[in-house]
Amino acid sequence: MSITASSPLRAWRWRRTLGLALLVLFHALPWLQWDGRQALLLDLNARRFDLFAWTLWPDDIGVLLGLLAVMAVGLALLTHLAGRVWCGHACPQTLWTRAFDGIAQALARVLQAKLARPATQLAWLLLSLWTGITFVGLFSPIRELVTGAFDGAWSGWETFWVLFYAGATWGNAGFLREQVCRSLCPFARMQPLLTDPHTPRMLYDPR
């Protein structure tokens, strides 16, 4: 009985740890340095993609497409062999929704109800804004981007995309939540094509 009771608890702790690690990794990626430059930078203006030790130029587009194809095939194979592992543990929609829930629960424990709600919304907005900056920082040098936030040096496109991804994060993780998976996610529509009778599936205990 003790093993049965503790197993879901260990699995839940493992899942939270993995989710936190993936969130930290995402937000840390633009800040990584390699040989004196940003390690991961898809600089569209300079037509130069820096991927750690690699530097890809426009005539290397075949290599980039090959990497994308390998990742797509890997995701399809993972889904075929292990089921909804991506959706349940690594999908950005899952990670940020879980992070938003954790913020709301933590603030509800330490603040009164009338203060917890506005504090939660503010915390969500701050996390969403930092997420937007981080994502744009993969396409524009992150150090210059953060510095520009304080001295008003952002270009119109940088401002638009930071606010766009911040708004998308806040709306998807804070309000649409599972509706994104049910109605908007194309991968969820493709999953039945990637499974067979031997693929692990989610089952719900009727109790």
Rank of each mutant, 00 (worst) to 15 (best):
R48E: 13
L68N: 13
T94G: 03
T120A: 04
L32F: 12
W31G: 03
F52A: 15
W54K: 12
L64D: 02
V70Y: 04
F49H: 14
L127W: 08
L67T: 05
T120Q: 04
R98P: 04
P118G: 08
L65Q: 12
L64N: 09
F52H: 15
V70F: 09
A108D: 15
L68C: 10
H27D: 07
L107T: 00
L41I: 00
G88F: 06
A72R: 08
V63T: 10
D60P: 12
R109P: 01
A99F: 01
Q93K: 09
L125M: 12
A76C: 07
G83T: 04
V85A: 05
Q121G: 15
D35C: 02
V24L: 14
I103C: 03
L126W: 04
G62M: 11
V110C: 04
G36E: 06
A53Y: 14
L81I: 13
W124K: 10
D60K: 03
A69E: 05
F52P: 06
D101P: 02
W57Q: 15
T97W: 08
Q33N: 10
L111H: 06
P30T: 00
L41T: 00
G102Q: 07
L41H: 04
T120I: 03
A106E: 01
C91Q: 08
T55L: 10
D59H: 15
F49D: 02
G102W: 05
L111P: 01
I103N: 00
L67P: 05
A39E: 03
D59Q: 15
D59V: 13
A46T: 02
G88I: 11
L107S: 06
P30R: 12
D50I: 12
G74M: 09
L68Q: 07
A46P: 03
G83P: 01
R98S: 14
F52C: 10
N45K: 14
A119G: 08
N45I: 08
L65S: 11
W34I: 05
I103F: 00
S128M: 05
S128L: 00
D101G: 08
W34R: 14
Q112A: 13
L25M: 08
A123D: 00
C87N: 09
